[in-house]
């Protein structure tokens, strides 16, 4: 690794890398704390979103792009995924209910 790796130009990537690793370890350890299942899921999903934001913002430079590009990407992916999930989730529960009966 060159000297410049630790200098200012590339520092953001390696700080992001370290934070991502810490979050990943925290996610792996979370199960050991015997928290309620719903809380564990919320915890994991929240940290997943933090990791995704850090990768998008720092590694993919979305933080430094024009805001409308960042909004197009984030909203395009997030909103459509949520709509898709919102349509699928109730259907899966109704399938489960009808199968159990």
């Amino acid at each position: 690794m060159s000297e410049s790796t630790h200098g200012s130009p590339y520092r953001v990537y390696w700080i992001t890398w370290a934070i991502l690793l810490v979050i990943t370890v925290a996610m792996l350890m979370a199960e050991r704390f015997h928290m309620p299942r719903w809380f564990l899921i919320v915890f994991l999903v929240a940290f997943m979103m933090v990791k995704a934001t850090m990768i998008g913002g720092n590694f993919m430079h979305l933080r430094f792009e024009k805001r409308n590009l960042a909004v197009m990407v984030a909203a395009g992916l997030l909103v459509t995924s949520l709509i898709l999930f919102a349509y699928i989730a109730p259907e899966s529960w109704s399938v489960l209910r009808s199968t159990v009966r």
Partner: peptide, 9 residues
Amino acid sequence: ITSSATMGT
């Protein structure tokens, strides 16, 4: 994750 950091660099 490490490969992403090297890619960023």
